[in-house]
Simulated assay, not measured.
Amino acid sequence: MEKSVQPSERGAGDSSSASASASSSKAVEIPTVAQVIETQAKSASASGGSSVSGPPGSLPHPGFTLFKQGAEARLYRGTFLGKPTVLKERFSKKYRHPRLDEKLTTKRTQGEARTVARARKAGIPTPCIYFVNYQSNCIYMEDMQSATTSRDYIVAVQSIHAGDSFGALQPIMDKIGKTLATMHDGDIIHGDLTTSNIMLKQDATMPEPQVILIDFGLSSVSQLPEDKGVDLYVLEKAFLSTHPNTETLFRVILKSYTKHSRKAKDVIKKLDEVRLRGRKRTMVG
Rank of each mutant, 00 (worst) to 15 (best):
T126S: 09
S4Y: 12
M199H: 08
G49V: 01
R262K: 15
A41Y: 06
R99D: 00
E72A: 13
L271C: 12
M206K: 13
T182N: 03
G278E: 06
T205E: 08
S15M: 01
S220A: 05
L235H: 05
F80L: 11
Y140P: 03
S16K: 05
R120M: 08
T242G: 01
P55A: 07
S47Q: 10
R277Y: 13
L232D: 03
P62T: 04
T79H: 14
V33S: 07
L240T: 06
I30F: 07
S21L: 10
R118A: 14
E102P: 02
T179Q: 10
K93Y: 04
I30Y: 03
Q110T: 11
P98Y: 09
T194A: 03
A181S: 07
M1L: 08
H184Y: 08
A12Y: 09
A156V: 04
G177Q: 00
G191Q: 04
I253E: 00
T258W: 06
G217D: 05
P209K: 15
A18M: 10
Q110H: 10
S4G: 12
L235I: 11
S241K: 10
L100S: 14
E226I: 10
V5S: 02
P125G: 09
R279I: 15
T182V: 02
M206S: 12
R251K: 07
N137G: 15
T149D: 02
G49F: 01
P225F: 05
A147L: 15
P56R: 09
E29K: 14
R118L: 07
Q69H: 07
L104M: 00
P225Q: 10
